[in-house]
Amino acid sequence: MAFDEQYYNIGYLDRLSYADTFVHRLDPRIKLITSLLFLFTVISFPKYEVAALFPFFLFPAILLTAGEIPLWFIVKKVAIVSPFAIFIGIFNPLLDTAPVAVLPALTVAAGWFSFASILLKFILTVSTALLLIATTSFPTVCHALRQLGMPSLFVSQLLFLYRYIFVLAEETMRIVRARDMRSFGRKGTDVKVFVRIMGVLFLRTVERAERIYFAMLARGFQGDMPTGKHYSIATRDMIFAGSVVVCLFVFRFYPVSEILGRFFQELFL
């Protein structure tokens, strides 16, 4: 992916996270914990499970629609995200060839089930992680982390990083544009040029850190990054958390797809 595209992608996601909807207003800790619970439940399914995973799409579907996040954006992000899981998963159908009868007339390799399972888990986990950040602004996530007991030094590191990603990405983008403008195809993009760009960028970054340090000192910085925000959990947060937990429990231990399918079969077939 080109640099500009990646940059605008983060920027877009970041802007979405500052919207004001029911999902955005939920306590960040609740969102973080329910998302983690969700992810944990999804990956806890054994490797051949396929049908039981479908009900879990309810969670991202609700975040997506109630949070007013455009579907195409998430789909696109999921599609282009690192292909590692798929790359590893595709070996399953090739290696695990035990036949499984799916329909009266159709037999497939068991590996296809485990591959489909990986694929579904992949879509569920990636889209949920993206939706979490699309509906919770990053500083809020950080405050939640601090309140949940993450080391304060790490949290202020995250906050600093978030603040300067955009500044540095723009600076880098200008340098990369200058490189591409004069590199006519391949030549300028080799490692040697990259190293020199990195060197320059590195020193500029060090100098920027010094200027920021001056600005911090000018406002009384003596080593601690102060914070003031505290979130309190409202009733709607508890209701949200409660319903998520109940759904997760039901979806994990009752094969919802299966039951519905049988019901449908008995009615119509």
Partner: peptide, 19 residues
């Protein structure tokens, strides 16, 4: 961009008084 180093405007303006 060097002067504003906190992640939100509020936190940034509050940085000095909190210190």
């Amino acid at each position: 961009d060097d002067q504003l180093f906190m992640p939100t405007v509020y936190d940034d303006v509050a940085f000095g008084p909190r210190n």
